[in-house]
Design a binder for these strands. Structure first.
Length: 252
DNA sequence: CGATTTTGACCGGCGC
DNA sequence: GCGCCGGTCAAAATCG
């Protein structure tokens, strides 16, 4: 072990450390932005829920359920396409009063008679976020190849499911939707992602006001993990990825 | 030329 | 009862 070798090694490690710190800082900022957006959307959702149509909260016979999925997209992309593994046919578009962005109406036509509909509209607060509202239950299985493609080819990522109730019970239900719970944030390199707690620890200790930020992040994580809908969506996403890795052979 | 999307018209529910 | 608004229909337009 020569001193030169050690020095070189130390320099390399320092460079790597600096690189990681910058990366952590950027990811931390993105995480904070995302958490703000989530809180904003959650509050808007709660406001709407409490202000409008309270009588509709009485569940219909058979339980008509709706779930919302928030999808982060490229703001330049004006299309209202949410790749979720199902085939949808657009049957209408409307501009609603509370949102200048048009709302598109889709029906599932993967199977004849499938009653599922979805409404897709850009978030009024952040036009890079698409809100997809699903209604009904599919009477057929999801097209796993399309779902797989949608995960790899789409530049969008569903950041969370703001569900009042998820119409497709996760894991054991073959009719569940492809709710992609992607907390990695669009545009970031998958290879660069370490596990979140250590990432947050590095980030929080590398800043002067680290304690404050750390507390914010911990609060947010606690908030998310307490939300049963988040847990359900997370479980669905994990199940989805397992299914994609080990696809069951399709019948001839 | 068939499939799909667009878009204006129509319908029904809800609040005033 | 009337008007507003969201959701759906269906003819026209567009696409492959």
């Amino acid at each position: 072990m020569s001193p030169d070798y050690d020095k070189e090694k130390v320099e390399a490690l320092e460079a790597e450390l600096e690189c990681l710190q910058k990366e952590n800082e950027a990811l931390g900022l993105m995480f904070e932005t995302m958490s703000r957006k989530y809180i904003m959307l959650h509050q808007a959702y709660l406001r709407q829920k409490s202000n409008k149509r309270q009588r509709l909260e009485v569940p219909a016979a058979g339980g008509s359920k709706a779930s919302q999925v928030f999808v982060k997209t490229d703001p330049r992309d004006q299309s209202l396409i949410v790749q979720d593994g199902f085939q949808w046919r657009k049957y209408g578009q409307k501009v609603t009063k509370d949102n200048p962005s048009p709302r598109a109406y889709f029906k599932c036509f993967m199977a004849p008679g499938c009653p599922v509909k979805k409404k897709v509209q850009r978030c009024v607060e952040d036009k890079s976020i698409i809100v997809a509202t699903y209604e009904g239950q599919h009477n057929h299985d999801v097209d796993s190849t399309a779902a797989g493609k949608s995960l790899s080819a789409s530049c969008s990522s569903a950041i969370f499911s703001g569900t009042r109730s998820i119409p497709f019970p996760p894991l054991d239900n073959p009719f569940r939707p492809t709710i992609t719970l992607d907390l990695t944030l669009s545009g970031s390199d998958l290879q660069n992602h370490r596990n979140l707690p250590s990432l947050m620890h590095d980030y929080s200790t590398s800043n002067d006001d680290g304690n404050n930020k750390k507390k914010k992040i911990e609060d947010y994580v606690a908030f998310l993990t307490k939300d049963p809908n988040f847990t359900l969506a997370l479980a669905a996403a994990v199940a989805r990825s397992i299914k994609t890795e080990h696809p069951k052979p399709s019948p001839p």
